[in-house]
Nucleic acid binder design. Sequence first.
DNA 1: AAGCACACCTGCTAGC
DNA 2: TGCTAGCAGGTGTGCT
Length: 277
Amino acid sequence: MPELPEVETVRRGLETFGVGHQVTGVDVTGKRTIRRQSIEEFKGDLIGSTLLVARRRGKYLLVDLDTDAVLVIHLRMSGQVRIEAPGAEVVPHTHVRLSLSNETELRFVDPRTFGELFVASELDERGVPAVLGALGRDPLVDEIAVNALFGRLRIRHVALKGFLLDQTEICGIGNIYADEICFAAGLSPLRRTDTLKRSEVERLVSSMHAVLDAAILAKGSTLKDARYRDVTGGLGSYQEHHATYDREGLPCPSCGRPIRRGKVIGRSTYFCPKCQR
DNA sequence: AAGCACACCTGCTAGC
DNA sequence: TGCTAGCAGGTGTGCT
């Protein structure tokens, strides 16, 4: 589900509705959701602390605590963060509930149980948990310099889409936005990164920003299963602007020929063979 | 050592 | 209508 635009939308929701309040209680019902530390340690790290600021790095949510530790949340495929009234119906697959001092609850809902929460206290100079140190540059938080990216692309021998999905190179792009960025840049997702010209890398960088900014403006993409929601249950609308993703056989918005579907590094990949080279 | 397949889960859908 | 195989926004591990 959630890639950079969806996680950024959740982050903004936490800034509006979640931070500035103290954690007064922690309820954990899903064992798999807390797996980097014991549930007792997780509760001990949170109870009594105040949520200060919600940040994001790639697809990770980082909530600064007043204890100098950071609550880390990753939604993986099916996770949702919701802010609810304490009496609100507890939907199935609700694994963690944080009671907050403003009479709301922060809930983590995750049918596939791939998502996780943990509290990290070992941080680097940017306040990023040391365990996330392998993450590459974030397109919104960091500047993506054409020169540096050109250099990285040259020394990798991989399909462009594989590079965009590699979180140690650039973090936050997933299967949907990799396809949309490739289309916007007019580049084939199968294109070998070491064959890209400088002008094409320039197009790649500007397309990356254009697509991600537009998707954030639309509050992300909610696909057919309607699983992605923001913290108040709102839906994204960027799926209405998808040029290629999940549009097999439908006309390319640029040339009108049917969008094709294939597999790149094992992931469904949608592209226009005419407009993308 | 980079690059790939697979495992981790549940739920939905397409096809028989 | 009802079953089942296949597939899904991600990433960590382990193989080649």
